[in-house]
């Protein structure tokens, strides 16, 4: 038991999870912004905008996240010398955030689009009838209801994002949970199963409340029809 408890003094597990939470927070904000714009483009009446949105979703939804994160470090940073911050570690953190955001924006877009599909035709017709154009109608009528209808799929994307922040390890963000677990496993061969269960439980404790919260929120926000 003491043997196991020494794990917590040797490795700062809470700090490792804190990195994953920070990655989640920034990537969620940025992907929500990109995803909303993409969703607007995909429902707009302009064919070229629609094509940009569709192409973005097809490309990034079908690319493994590992390639996207790796591309940031190996291609953009190593080969092209592109940086997002003069600070070495900060640069990799931001690149990982951008990689995660770009990848998940495709899923946010699809989640919002599925929310738009829950808005009855009558709402769009009513918006037109009182003289609203595309952007005012989207902003005042369609999107507010679409977001309320998209709580569950958006929550699912958020859960996926939380778990996918572990992939940042390949983007040289070396202090996040999966990298710390790897080091711990390598140096503490006597307790590898307890180490795995500890880290796994950490994710269960983060993910399950988020799942419960989205379910509760989706009931609370559901538009009565």
């Amino acid at each position: 038991m003491d043997n196991y408890l020494s794990l917590f003094t040797e490795y700062n597990i809470a700090a490792a999870f804190w990195v994953n939470i920070q990655l989640t927070f920034w990537a969620a904000l940025i992907s929500l912004a990109i995803g909303t714009v993409l969703a607007l483009m995909r429902i707009s009446p302009v064919p070229s905008f629609e094509a940009i949105g569709a192409a973005y979703v097809t490309i990034f939804r079908n690319t493994p996240l590992t390639i996207i994160i790796l591309f940031g470090v190996l291609a953009l940073f190593n080969q092209l010398g592109f940086t997002l911050s003069p600070n070495f570690n900060e640069n990799f953190f931001r690149m990982a955030v951008m990689g995660l955001a770009i990848y998940h924006a495709a899923f946010v877009c699809e989640a919002i689009r599925s929310g738009v599909n829950t808005v009855p035709v009558g709402q769009a017709e009513a918006a037109r009838a009182i003289g609203l154009g595309f952007l005012p109608a989207a902003r005042l009528i369609i999107l507010p209801q679409a977001f309320r209808g998209a709580v569950v799929p958006l929550g699912n994307v958020l859960i996926a994002l939380i778990k996918n922040t572990t992939v940042a390890s390949v983007g040289s963000v070396a202090v996040e949970a999966s990298s710390v677990m790897k080091t711990a496993l390598e140096f503490r061969g006597d307790i590898i199963i307890p180490i795995f269960l500890t880290f796994a439980l950490g994710f269960v404790l983060i993910v399950i409340p988020v799942g419960l919260l989205t379910t509760w929120l989706s009931r609370k926000m559901a538009v009565a029809r």
Binding site: A111, P153, N156, V157, A160, N164, V207, S218
Partner: peptide, 23 residues
């Protein structure tokens, strides 16, 4: 949303919320 669930997306999206696939 039914096809191509995102990586690590638990459960199905909203469309079968009636079946209660989520917690």
């Amino acid at each position: 949303a039914a096809v191509g669930l995102p990586v690590g997306l638990p459960g199905l999206p909203d469309t079968d919320a009636d079946a209660g696939p989520r917690r």
